[in-house]
């Protein structure tokens, strides 16, 4: 019934001042696919994610989500964003709200769900990310790993069709990275469409369907984890794989 890709980028360009951060990006993502976006820092990975849900505007090209054009201004973007969950490097939980309030905010403000079903669903989500006992706590009372798991639950509360992860483990202590990656792995296995910007190549190798390698605003190479790690094509990707795997 809905054919075509869930996300489609055509010739997307974006610059900050004189600095071209996305240079003619073409990318399509199938429903149910888990994509890892890798590349050196400053290569435009995060910017690309932020363009997909309209947090950043693009200069030329088109982005389509579920067949609808994504524009960073206008009313339509609110409806599109409500179908895309996003998880940030710095968690960005709302510090003046409890964990439960963080998760029920969007269903109550954006959706038409009542308080009771929203809270029930929030508790289910907390169960799913493994911290049902934290519902009444404030974000400041949680560890980094717990905060990020709440952030994932918050993004899932609107029942998104797509999840964007912007370096979700980069701000975490090593011992907490595992617990967040486990939640993401489960999500991928359940068939959630997700785009993950990460340096966790173990996760990429094990979980994702496709790795997209970006450098200097261009997609240099993309392929399955096996193709990417074992049969790397481009010099730049080879260099990157060497650096990240052998250190």
């Amino acid at each position: 019934m809905q054919d075509g890709h869930l996300v489609q980028l055509d010739s997307v360009r974006k610059s900050f001042g004189d600095n071209l951060v996305l240079d003619d990006i073409d990318l399509s993502i199938d429903r149910g696919a888990a994509i890892v976006v890798a590349g050196p820092s400053g290569s435009g990975k995060s910017t690309m994610l932020r363009c997909i849900n309209g947090l950043e505007s693009i200069e030329s090209g088109t982005i389509r989500f579920d067949g609808r054009p994504v524009k960073s201004s206008g009313r339509e973007i609110y409806g599109i964003r409500a179908q895309i969950g996003m998880v940030f490097q710095q968690f960005n939980l709302f510090p003046h709200m409890t964990v439960l309030q963080n998760i029920t905010l969007a269903p109550l403000e954006v959706g038409d769900a009542g308080r009771e079903p929203s809270e029930r669903r929030a508790r289910d989500l907390l169960e799913r990310v493994g911290i049902p006992e934290k519902a009444g706590d404030y974000p400041a009372d949680l560890s980094g790993g717990q905060q990020q798991r709440v952030a994932i639950a918050r993004a899932l509360a609107v029942e998104p069709k797509l999840m964007l992860f912007d370096e979700p483990t980069s701000a975490l202590d090593p011992e907490m990275i595992r617990e967040v990656l486990d939640v993401m792995r489960d999500l991928a296995r359940e068939g959630m469409t997700m785009i993950v910007v990460t340096h966790e190549m173990g996760f990429a190798r094990e979980v994702c369907d496709r790795i997209v390698f970006i450098d200097e605003g261009q997609i240099v190479e993309q392929g399955t984890p096996d193709e990417f790690f074992n049969h790397t094509q481009s010099e730049r990707a080879k260099e990157f794989v060497d650096k990240i795997i052998h250190h």
């Binding site: 609110y78 964003r81 940030f88 710095q90 709302f94 403000e109 993004a155």
Partner: peptide, 26 residues
Amino acid sequence: GRGQIDAALSLGLSYPRTLRRIVLPQ
């Protein structure tokens, strides 16, 4: 922080709602 606004917008909240529920209370 800018991250608070990003998070609220990414959940589908409009700018006025983001201001009312997230920015002004803080």
